[in-house]
Amino acid sequence: MSLRMFRVISTAIVALALTQPAAFAHDQIGVAGGLFSGLLHPVTGIDHLIAMVAVGIWGAQLGAPAIWVLPITFPLVMAIGGVLGVLRIPLPMPEVVIAVSALVLGVAVATRLRLSFPVAAVIVAVFAVFHGHAHGAELPGSANPMAYGVGFVTATGLLHLGGIAIGTLTRWPAGERVIQGLGAGIAGLGCYFLAQGLGAIA
């Protein structure tokens, strides 16, 4: 690289760095902060993320009516858990149940577990309440709560839809294997979080 080019690039980098506004990191405030926190919360918690995606994949594997009932009812059931969390009504061992949810849903995806729709719906609903409880209990104090709710429901719904989209790979034999591998990975991560929740590992 010529010296001139080096100077031009370095000038650009320094100028860009000097003209950036403040980051306002950490403390998410106001409507934008609430929306941002709500959108990020389900995505940044890996235990939540894998469970939400697994629900979508399992719904796609189960087919109708699960594939269309779950996107409609899941955020609502999760919001019931969120209500319990916001109202500070405790649930037993929430971290352990959330880890178990990843493990169970991962195994269900990996083994293509075929349960009747009511049984599958009850399993998913119980887990949804615990996940929602965690989101509600961790509502940031400084952020706009309404915006947080909008962000959290939207992010959860999109993760769920993402899972359903991944689940459509089951139409192809190779895709089916990929999904089963993904389920096994989710179950493995669930085991890790369960061990962490029980205090077996730091």
Binding site: T73, V86, V153
Partner: peptide, 22 residues
């Protein structure tokens, strides 16, 4: 459209709890 309704209802439920808790 129905899923969007589910999301809106969920937001309403969350908001009601926040109002009640505050």
């Amino acid at each position: 459209v129905r899923a969007l309704g589910g999301w809106i209802a969920a937001i309403g439920l969350m908001m009601a709890s926040i109002v009640l808790a505050s």
